[in-house]
């Protein structure tokens, strides 16, 4: 058996080493403390609420979030706006509905059951308005990018002047965290760009963190429930495993030889 463990260890080292040397070549993302990481990770409610504000006031003019509904804003484990607040938020949007009895489409104030209103009717319209680049839907964006939250958080703060020798076309910007460093979204955030309703100082870093937290929740709305259930499930499994282990010892003790 010893040789077995030695070989497993060896293989593990073989596999791990190149992965490490590989990641060393990549750029290190900016780090921050995410409250939702870890076994008991939970979202920071006020950060989620601020993040929603950043999304509506900054991102939502180009980026859709088609899988979210206004009712989600009041749901447990999310930003947890009160039902009244969520209704007021929904009602502040004009939603296209219909056809009515005359066969006409019409607009009405949004309701909780409505999906987030999209900035463009379709992908083509979005491309046409953004110089050919489609601003990706942000509902699952965090899960759709290799670096996850760290990548989004860094990207938002990664705008720089291009190094000498790099020429950029019109409508292309330099970002040190973007794959290939060229991004078609201009820098959107600047200190004091928005006024947080809870009075928090709206620095670029703060806004990046808040909106990324919000996007994480958007992509994984049941994260808190998952962490809670996971902890219970694993504790339960450990207890049952221990019980089964002693039952097994008891049963096998009827046989003279060892297991």
């Amino acid at each position: 058996m010893k040789i077995f463990y030695r070989i497993i260890l060896l293989v593990f080292l073989i596999i791990i080493t190149p992965i490490h040397s590989n990641s060393a070549e990549k750029i290190e993302y900016l780090k921050t403390d995410w409250s939702f990481k870890g076994l008991f990770g939970k979202f920071d409610r006020s950060s989620l609420q601020r993040g929603y504000q950043v999304y509506t006031e900054v991102c939502s003019s180009c980026h859709s979030m088609k899988y979210l509904s206004y009712r989600n804003l009041a749901e447990k484990g999310g930003p947890e706006f009160s039902l009244e607040q969520a209704k007021a938020i929904a009602a502040s949007f004009e939603v296209k509905d219909g056809p009515n009895a005359d066969g006409e489409m019409f607009t009405r104030p949004g309701r909780l059951s409505d999906k987030f209103v999209m900035p463009y009717d379709n992908v083509k319209a979005a491309q046409a308005a953004n110089g050919g680049a489609y601003p990706p839907d942000m509902s699952v964006l965090v899960k759709a990018r290799g670096g996850g939250v760290d990548y989004i958080y860094s990207l938002l703060q990664g705008y720089e002047d291009p190094p000498t020798g790099v020429t950029l076309d019109d409508g292309v910007y330099y970002n040190k965290y973007m794959y290939g460093n060229k991004i078609k979204m201009a820098n959107q955030l600047s200190d004091g760009l928005i006024e947080y309703s809870d009075g928090t100082n709206a620095t670029v870093e703060q806004m990046s963190k808040d909106v990324t937290t919000f996007l994480m929740w958007a992509a994984e709305p049941h994260l808190e429930a998952r962490h809670r259930m996971g902890f219970k499930a694993i504790i339960y499994l450990i207890i049952l495993t221990v019980l089964v282990y002693f039952s097994m010892k008891k049963i096998w003790s009827r046989i003279e030889t060892e297991v």
């Binding site: 076994l39 759709a144 290799g146 996971g230 694993i234 499994l237 495993t241 096998w252």
Partner: peptide
């Protein structure tokens, strides 16, 4: 009972993936 014991150990690993790193074995794309 022996299979059951091993299965439970296996399920603990399984549960860890499901509840704590559900997307790590998939691709972001």
């Amino acid at each position: 009972i022996k299979d059951g014991f091993a299965l439970l150990m296996f399920m603990i690993v399984f549960a860890f993936f499901v509840f704590y790193t559900p997307n790590i074995l998939g691709h972001a794309d």
